[in-house]
């Protein structure tokens, strides 16, 4: 029948295609981005954040970075709280991505201080020696176009005020993309909510460790701390690390939970054993070195 009637065949083919389309693509609009999944605290992007987002899109950052944390154990440990639908209601387009050549960025907001991002965008390899991320120092050379950004905010129907627009005059594209990074995943207060309260007495399992035992721990330090605190604990983005400044337990707690308002990330995902290694390394390694030389 239809093999002799092209119009009929096309009508039937269209109906066949529309079945799955209606159920899996159109029907979800009934629930998604409605009151059902709205989250209090999720707010639209400010002008500079939105511009940063547009630069992120322009440079194709989504080709290497995803922006959704899946509800899987290893993933939540690595990146933070899993992503929720209501967190993305202002994202046009979505930027979830499909490949993690670099790490997921859904929860990067507030993880590091601004200065970390500036230095990292200028020259990623100065902080992470073997990364393949290109340098984006040149973004600093491009000033922002306040008028165009204001127009885009109007198109998106996002709220803004005049001081926010005026402030753009002195900013460049690097400022915008860093502002965007700091907004990511930060509308819900997940970082404080997932902080661990350490109860009971903390016992240093490596108390009285000698210098030779600590030598392999230098790589743990280099992989996790050196980018901010320097190769030799001399400090840069983060402060200089002087062993005597903190008691063992205090130091352990800072590394384990981080200082959420101070730009120090939590390193609980490393596990308490490695955090104790770092504690001992930071507190005693330089002293040992001093004695042996």
């Amino acid at each position: 029948m239809w093999e002799k009637k092209p119009v009929l065949l096309m009508v039937l083919a269209t109906c066949t295609i529309l079945a799955g389309t209606i159920i899996t693509m159109i029907l979800p609009f009934t629930w998604v981005n409605t009151k059902a999944d709205r989250i209090e605290g999720v707010v639209p992007y400010t002008p500079i954040e939105q511009e940063g987002r547009d630069i992120y899109i322009r440079e194709g950052c989504n080709n290497c970075h995803s922006q959704t944390v899946r509800p899987l154990v290893a993933e939540v440990l690595r990146y933070g709280e899993y992503s929720k639908s209501g967190e993305f209601v202002y994202d046009r387009p979505f930027l979830w991505g499909s490949k993690r050549t670099g790490p997921d960025l859904a929860r990067v907001g507030g993880k590091y201080p601004d200065s970390w991002h500036y230095k990292h965008m200028d020259s990623p390899r100065s902080m992470v020696p073997r990364t393949n991320m290109p340098d984006y120092k040149w973004l600093r050379d491009n000033p922002l176009d306040a008028e165009a950004i204001q127009h885009k905010m109007d198109v998106l129907d996002f709220p803004y005020n005049n001081p926010q627009i005026a402030a753009l005059q002195t900013k460049n594209e690097m400022d915008a993309i860093v502002a965007y990074m700091q907004k990511l995943g930060n509308d819900i207060n997940w970082r404080k909510a997932t902080q661990v309260e350490i109860i009971g007495e903390l016992v240093n399992p490596y108390a009285g460790v000698d210098h030779i035992t600590m030598e392999p721990w230098e790589s743990v330090y280099r992989n996790n701390c050196a980018a901010c605190h320097g190769e030799h604990l001399e400090g840069e983005i983060g402060p200089e690390l002087v062993g005597d400044n903190y008691e063992e337990e205090e130091l352990f707690k800072i590394i384990y939970n981080g200082i959420p308002d101070g730009g120090m990330p939590s390193f609980s995902a490393l596990g308490s054993d490695k955090v104790w290694q770092l504690t001992n390394f930071i507190k005693y390694y330089n002293q040992g070195e001093g004695e042996s030389h």
Binding site: T14, P28, N33, S85, F88, V89, Y90, F94, A148, K152
Partner: peptide, 30 residues
Amino acid sequence: VLFVVNSAAVPAALFKSYSAYAGTNDANVH
């Protein structure tokens, strides 16, 4: 059908537009 639906966007400039769908909807349509 696929191309027209997924192209839906609001132009903001000659070569800049914002998707007609947001977040999770945009992901599912895409």
